[in-house]
Design a protein around this nucleic acid. Structure first.
Length: 509
RNA sequence: GGAGCGUUGGUCAAGGGGUUAAGACGCCUCCCUUUCACGGAGGAAUCACGGGUUCGAUUCCCGUACGCUCUACCA
């Protein structure tokens, strides 16, 4: 019987959600939706990660903004709840004990100091980082090296311990990765990973297996950095007797720093001046704010699109995809094996594309609140829509709408007179005087009629129209930017146009 | 050090035994527009290296180099 597709994303709520995280969610989501399956959100909240206030809600909000809402999650509940590790603690212990009973795991009583000592003692030039493996474990204090009586005594005394997996020696462990094909490892090269920590919480290794099994996960996608620990997980699925139900794995390529090499991190964004988090993240401990793509003026459509094609493409020339198209066209076979460097310029290009192709009403509320934040009063949404339509092709980020459109709603705060003055003369001043008078008496007021009037007057006064356009523009908008001057004049209205011309004239006198 | 994974222009990438080796971002030139942008036309720039296999390798195989990841009671 075909197993229903259920993929899961398991972030740790330690802070902001970065690009790699969102892309992992996205691929999970696309695969699930494409196969009419479910997308499950599970939260890693071991002792190290649990107490970051607001992080879980933050993740939920990010996913919502991106349009990647999970079918099951701590918030939404579901048939396999709870989804928080801390609420599943007993289950992990039970399975860890089962592994010990079967001889696949053991108690280890070594203190952190003893572990450090071991790492120093066995360190050689050939082996700079000795492992707690099938050789070393014989020399450490654990339920394999110690006698049964001693182990029982320690347990009864309440001596602190961890539970480690007993990795077999010289066994080849292989599995099929959906992106990479067959991958194999020698079991001797992996150490005896801790499964249950001293505080009774599971490590990722135990939790991921137990959770995926008990939540009936069919497909598990994660970053490439997990590849080396895959053999531990495979073994666990075998030892726990669930091998037939093991999910299919896919290890996703990493997103790399734009300069240099290595995984992209939050620090790189700070350093190079671009965001790496989906949304603003406020670190409650340091009070440090990290800007997100959303607040910087990115559209979720663009953000998702840009992330989707960073490591995948459908083999055609198409680059701009909606979520629906992505669901339809996504396939893991087309996901790349190698990591990709993040390119902020390209990310902005995607945003520009989406600004141009989406109806302005889709993002008008965001732009409106941006205006309000900049103390520009907008009381006519209709007018804002018209303005946005006019200026959208010169806006790369939503925030660009402020500079490109503010002058439609208020007079420019200052006028770049320096750009007019060098070529300014009395004839031109006279021209604008006359134009104002003509404007005053005209009945018609639209871009075409204004242009006609403007050009007729120029011809009468024997001045080239071209020489008058720049001054006119600067009078209306304050600088050398904005859409066509006559369009601007039409939208701001007759009174306002005349007012701005006269004001500018008074400055140029 | 070891293991795993990877390597097509500056970046993202298509392709894959015989091609003028697509396309996009960025950059440059020109056209449009007397602002900027959009749009249009061009341009510079690439198969890491060495061996095989083959009539022929960017493509297949083996090495080498380089890069990345992992090598925690972090995920």
């Amino acid at each position: 019987m075909e197993k229903k597709v259920r993929v899961r994303f398991a972030p740790s709520p330690t802070g902001g959600l970065h690009l790699g995280g969102v892309r992992t969610v996205l691929y999970n989501y696309l695969f699930a939706k494409k196969n009419k399956g479910e997308f499950v959100l599970r939260i890693e909240d071991t002792d190290q990660t649990r107490y970051v206030a607001g992080a879980e809600e933050y993740i939920q909000e990010c996913l919502q903004w991106c349009g990647l809402v999970p079918d099951e999650s701590p918030q939404h509940g579901g048939p396999y709840a709870p989804y928080r590790q801390s609420e599943r603690k007993e289950m992990y212990r039970q399975y860890a004990e089962q592994l010990i009973a079967q001889g696949n795991a053991y108690y280890a009583f070594d203190t952190p100091e003893e572990l450090d000592e071991m790492r120093i003692k066995f360190k050689t030039d050939d082996n700079p980082s000795p492992q707690y493996n099938y050789v070393a474990r014989e020399k450490m204090r654990n339920s394999i090296s110690l006698g049964e009586d001693e182990v029982n005594r320690l347990l009864n005394e309440g001596a602190p311990y961890v539970i480690r997996i007993k990795m077999p020696a010289e066994e080849t462990i292989s599995f099929i990765d959906m992106i990479r094909g067959e991958v194999s490892f020698n079991s001797s090269l992996t150490d005896d990973k801790v499964l249950l920590k001293g505080d009774g919480m599971p490590t990722y290794h135990l939790a991921v297996v137990v959770d995926d099994y008990s939540m009936k996960i069919s497909h598990a996608f994660r970053g490439e950095e997990w590849l080396p620990s895959a053999p531990v997980h495979i073994l666990l699925w075998k030892y726990l007797g669930w091998y037939d139900e093991m999910p299919q794995w896919a290890h996703l390529p990493l997103i790399m720093k734009p300069d240099g090499h290595g995984k992209l991190s939050k620090r790189d964004g700070d350093r190079l001046g671009f965001p790496v988090f989906a949304m603003n993240w406020m670190d409650a401990k340091t009070n440090e704010l990290t800007t997100g793509f959303r607040e910087l003026g990115f559209l979720p459509e663009a953000f998702i699109n840009m992330l989707a094609v960073l490591g995948w493409n459908d083999g055609t020339e198409q680059e701009v995809f909606s979520l629906e198209e992505l669901i339809e066209k996504f396939s893991l076979e087309k996901v790349h094996k190698g990591g990709a460097k993040f390119d902020y310029e390209k990310a902005k290009w995607f945003n520009h594309e989406w600004i141009k192709r989406l109806p302005v009403t889709n993002y008008l509320p965001q732009v409106k609140s941006l205006y309000e934040a900049n103390h520009i009063e907008v009381n006519d949404d209709q007018k804002l829509a018209v303005v946005m339509e006019l200026i959208k092709e010169r806006c790369t980020l939503l925030t660009d709408f402020v500079l490109q459109g503010a002058f439609f709603f208020q007079s420019p705060a200052s006028i770049d007179a320096a750009s007019i003055k060098p070529k300014w003369n009395d004839d031109k001043a006279m021209f604008f005087d006359i134009v104002c008078e003509k404007f005053m008496v005209t009945e018609e007021w639209n871009a075409a009629s204004i242009e006609l009037l403007f050009k007729e007057t120029a011809t009468e006064k024997n001045i080239k129209v071209g020489e008058l356009q720049l001054p006119f523009r600067i009078m209306l908008v304050g600088g050398k930017f904005g859409p066509g001057v006559f369009d601007i004049a039409a939208i701001i209205g007759k009174e306002e146009t005349i007012k701005r011309i006269r004001y500018a004239l008074s400055i140029l006198m």
